[in-house]
């Protein structure tokens, strides 16, 4: 719990909240109205089986495409965060390479239904069994657990936006050239998040719960990298020729 920096006024925090929330809403892939209209239809058993009977490489490719689509929205989100584009190009790339998938996992709670333990994927709601063909049951189950636990916090869009920005602006990423600049941005974002949580009269524990989520996100992403390496070792040509180029750039 750092003391608020004397250089950040309440007006500045309010402005930051506005900018980051607007950026989030403009780039969140699915609008709240669309989410409400989306039929909460789960895949039928025959559809689940059809995903499960896909060759492992086809399922990996499908998921790589979906992740890449989601990441493109995160890149747009980053570009609209106040101060992000003022960072040097090296640091913009470092932050997105390390943090874009983490933000995709954070955003997943918007399209996750805790009751049925399913996530919006490829047109309907999918439970963990849909992803069996990937051969990464443990990772999938951790991703679902993470989404469920994010949902249980019932974050508002403002809070989600600020937490996403906080994750993206992590100043402890390796290879940053202007660490101090990133640290300043992250600290301001954290103050804005605290400000919003206070304004929304959230209980004190939410911020510390969110801090725990940061380490959970890192673990999910490093396990994704491990699973990809294992997959690539068996199917190097599939990754090389069929995976989206942006996915390969980020995780290769």
């Amino acid at each position: 719990n750092r003391d608020p920096s004397p250089t950040v006024s309440l007006a500045e925090l309010d402005h930051l909240v506005q900018i980051i929330s607007k950026s989030h809403l403009e780039t969140c892939q699915y609008l709240r109205e669309e989410l409400q209209q989306m039929s909460r239809q789960n895949f039928q058993q025959d559809e689940v089986e059809s995903y499960q009977s896909k060759p492992r490489e086809a399922m990996w490719q499908l998921c790589a495409v979906k992740i890449t689509e989601a990441i493109q929205y995160v890149v747009e989100f980053a570009k609209r965060i106040d101060g992000f584009m003022d960072l040097c190009q090296n640091d913009q790339i470092v932050l997105l390479k390390a943090g874009s998938l983490e933000v995709v996992f954070v955003r997943m709670c918007r399209v996750f239904d805790s009751q049925s333990n399913s996530v919006y994927f490829d047109g309907k709601f999918a439970g963990p069994d849909v992803f069996k063909g990937l051969g990464c049951d443990d990772l999938i189950s951790s991703v679902f657990d993470f989404a469920k636990s994010m949902c249980s916090l019932h974050l508002t869009e403002d809070e989600l936006a600020l937490f996403s920005a906080f994750v993206l602006l992590s100043a402890d990423r390796s290879w940053l050239q202007e660490k101090l600049q990133v640290e300043k941005l992250q600290q301001k974002t954290q103050l804005a998040l605290q400000h919003v949580l206070q304004k929304n009269q959230r209980e004190h524990g939410v911020l510390s719960k969110l801090r725990c989520k940061v380490s959970a996100l890192r673990s999910l992403c490093s396990r994704h990298t491990e699973k990809l390496s294992a997959f690539r070792a068996v199917y190097p040509d599939i990754v090389q020729t069929h995976f989206p180029p942006l996915y390969k750039e980020l995780f290769g």
Partner: peptide
């Protein structure tokens, strides 16, 4: 890093719509 991340760099360069 920029050289190894041409697509990401390009996405960052594209103006926001």
């Amino acid at each position: 890093l920029k050289e190894k991340h041409k697509i990401l760099h390009q996405l960052l360069q594209n103006s926001t719509s």
